[in-house]
């Protein structure tokens, strides 16, 4: 039995793990290797450089500014997405009128769920085109500007720049060496796009969780005289804790990455000012567009640092949110 067990374990793990190690871990290990070199990414020879690249990280103001941007996203993006998704899920499942069948969702909730999920299905190229049109800085052709101009908020001579705006919004900029730790409007726009795309998925996730909460718990609470708001905080939230913590980890990892948005949607002008850079897009820029002769090695060092941040974040999240599962 024991022999069969060992053979089974090895048999099941061998090929998938091998595949994974060869195609994922091995390239990443090489990345770690390159982070200790002055390689430019092209030449056959790879000069060894020790830990100098890591020391340079602390002097790289744009990297630190990008890190700050990631921190802003890490706070805002998961919270807004989770709150919106929870809110919609609650509306869809408990927001309807109570009748003989008890508490239920609003009419057409199935349709809403389907529509809300749409953005998940779009490739980033499409999302980029859509949103650059929406944010376009013209009251003739820009969706939002045209709308705001009609209402009279925006002067056609001064359309809002949105994806082209470097001014910090909500958070004041903190001068830091030659750069500023800030939360530029363009960054908020990118977060808005991310939220727009993400809410549907988490809505479906939470909604599923809510459906598995027995109806009578809601009924009972309502009959007790609790308002829907109270049932939300006293019942829904605690019982959904597991889904929320999973969502938190996923969204956190996405917030620390954010590459496709910062690379494919932020215009080149914003990438040049650094206003839209997050760690990943700055790494990409450094690897291919910097004048350092050791750019690839240096970019690899940044990426290793970024991966370390993400790893630590995910571990912390998993520890914080781990808690006894509520059985019912």
């Amino acid at each position: 039995m024991n022999h069969g067990r060992a053979r089974f374990i090895v048999g099941f793990l061998f090929f998938p793990v091998l595949l994974y190690v060869v195609y994922v871990i091995w390239p990443y290990l090489q990345t770690i290797g390159y982070s200790l070199t002055d390689w430019n990414g092209f030449t056959p020879e790879v000069p060894y450089a020790g830990f100098g690249n890591y020391a340079d990280l602390l002097k790289d103001e744009t990297f630190l500014r990008s890190l700050y941007h990631n921190a802003v996203i890490l706070v805002v993006y998961p919270i807004v997405t989770i709150l919106l998704a929870l809110f919609f899920a609650f509306m869809l499942n408990v927001g309807g009128r109570g009748d003989k069948a008890g508490v239920r969702g609003v009419a057409g909730s199935g349709l809403y769920k389907t529509i809300f999920f749409f953005p998940q299905l779009l490739s980033i190229a499409i999302v980029a085109i859509l949103w650059s049109r929406i944010f376009e800085s013209s009251t003739d052709t820009g969706f939002l500007n045209a709308l705001l101009a009609k209402v009279g908020i925006v002067d056609p001579q001064r359309p809002l720049l949105f994806l082209g705006e470097t001014n910090s919004w909500l958070l004041p900029g903190i001068p830091f060496g030659d750069t500023i730790l800030d939360a530029p409007v363009v960054l908020w726009c990118l977060i808005a796009i991310a939220v727009w795309g993400g809410v549907g998925f988490y809505l479906v996730l939470f909604s599923a969780g809510m459906q598995s909460i027995p109806r009578d718990i809601f009924e009972a609470a309502l009959l007790d005289g609790s308002t829907r708001g109270q049932t939300f905080f006293r019942i829904t939230l605690p019982l959904l804790w597991e889904q929320i913590s999973v969502a938190w980890v996923y969204l956190g990892i996405a917030a620390l990455d954010f590459f496709l948005l910062a690379y494919a949607i932020a215009p080149p002008s914003m990438q040049a000012t650094g206003a839209s850079h997050v760690m990943s897009s700055w790494i990409y820029h450094t690897a291919f567009g910097s004048s350092r002769y050791d750019k690839f090695g240096y970019a690899c060092a940044m990426a290793v640092a970024m991966a370390a941040f993400t790893f630590i974040f995910a571990l912390i999240q998993l520890r914080i949110t781990r808690r006894e599962k509520i059985e019912f």
Binding site: S137, S138, T139, Q157, P159, L161, S269
Partner: peptide, 8 residues
């Protein structure tokens, strides 16, 4: 041109 700074 108004808004040119963020137009393509």
């Amino acid at each position: 041109q108004a808004g040119a700074a963020a137009l393509d």
